[in-house]
């Protein structure tokens, strides 16, 4: 037996799918663009671009390591652009 609350949840799930499905791709692309910019900011110092917030972004680097490889391949660089920062 499904309760009215379950029904309501199901309906709102379907509604959310209806709202999101047509634009999932476009929004994911936009999010990725934002993220790419963020990656550039975080890793800018290593590529010789001065970054006044380097002290803070340095802390973030280990957290972004996993995404680093995806990012540099997406930017058209087959190998890691940083000499001391190998990922592949």
């Amino acid at each position: 037996m499904t309760t009215p609350t379950q029904w309501l949840k199901r309906i709102s799930d379907l509604g959310a799918q209806y709202y999101n499905a047509p634009y999932r791709a476009a929004i994911a692309r936009a999010k990725r663009d934002e993220e790419d910019l963020f990656m550039l900011l975080v890793f800018s110092e290593m590529m010789g671009v001065p970054n006044p917030a380097a002290w803070s972004t340095l802390e973030l680097q280990p957290l972004l390591m996993e995404r680093f490889h995806d990012w540099h391949t997406r930017m058209g660089m087959e190998r890691s652009p940083l000499d001391h920062f190998r990922c592949c």
Partner: peptide, 10 residues
């Protein structure tokens, strides 16, 4: 960006 206007309008 699509989420701003096009998506809610649609």
């Amino acid at each position: 960006p699509v989420w701003m206007l096009l998506q809610p309008r649609d």
